[in-house]
Design a protein around this nucleic acid. Structure first.
Lengths: 120, 120
DNA sequence: CCGTATCCGATCCGATACTG
DNA sequence: CAGTATCGGATCGGATACGG
């Protein structure tokens, strides 16, 4: 990866990173890996997310092509979200990052305590 | 990774992901991989970042233990930032994500165009 | 050179209410 | 069930000014 040692404005990471690398998006994609799921089911898997936040997140992911949305014409209507191949391909990098947070949270928290102590 | 299929509030990723996975943090860490660097040098490598944003980002990274800060007692003072071992360990997952953005930006942009057309 | 302090508009975000 | 609409508070982010 020799490109972009200097991060100029046009760098792809500048246009994508913010969009894909947020907490809710990572959770949604992870939850959808085993199979399609309906709105409220997804919501139940993500403790603390509001309906608004989840809706916005799903829209963004759909727009970026990471998942697809399918309306089931029942009454009341159901909506099923399914991860796309593109979304699947993002899952591996996400898993690595998730793994990192699990492995290093303790050390990070230790650093934070030390830093806050110095500052006080 | 069988843990956390249901993302409860206490999940480590919830406490860390937002902190580490933002655009500026990724750029700073990447820039610092080859070696320590001074404030304005870092700034020059990240087109469009403001002094305030960079300062905040560096503080956060320092607090989380991903880099260290060293004051050089000259006049005027210099400050050198160096990536820590912990920061280095985060670089691999970041690189994977960065690679993904390079490989898939085109497809994402295509999806966005299609989505926006449908919406219009 | 490397910050901190302040102001201020833009934006996010949760809570709430309402609809097909 | 799965949204949309709206509102007010909190937060962000840039611009600017100033200090060690």
């Amino acid at each position: 990866m020799p490109e972009c040692q200097h991060f100029d404005i046009g760098c792809p990471s500048r246009q994508l990173f913010d969009q894909i690398a947020d907490k809710w998006s990572m959770m949604v994609l992870t939850v959808l890996v085993p199979g399609p799921m309906r709105f409220n089911a997804i919501k139940r898997h993500m403790e603390g997310v509001t309906q608004k936040a989840l809706t916005q997140c799903l829209r963004k992911l759909e727009r970026n092509g990471l998942l697809s949305r399918r309306v089931i014409p029942t009454s009341p209507v159901g909506v099923e979200y399914e991860i796309t191949a593109l979304g699947q391909s993002l899952h591996a990098p996400f898993k690595a990052l998730y793994r990192w947070t699990l492995d290093n949270l303790d050390e990070v928290e230790e650093s934070r305590r030390a830093f806050d102590l110095r500052a006080a």
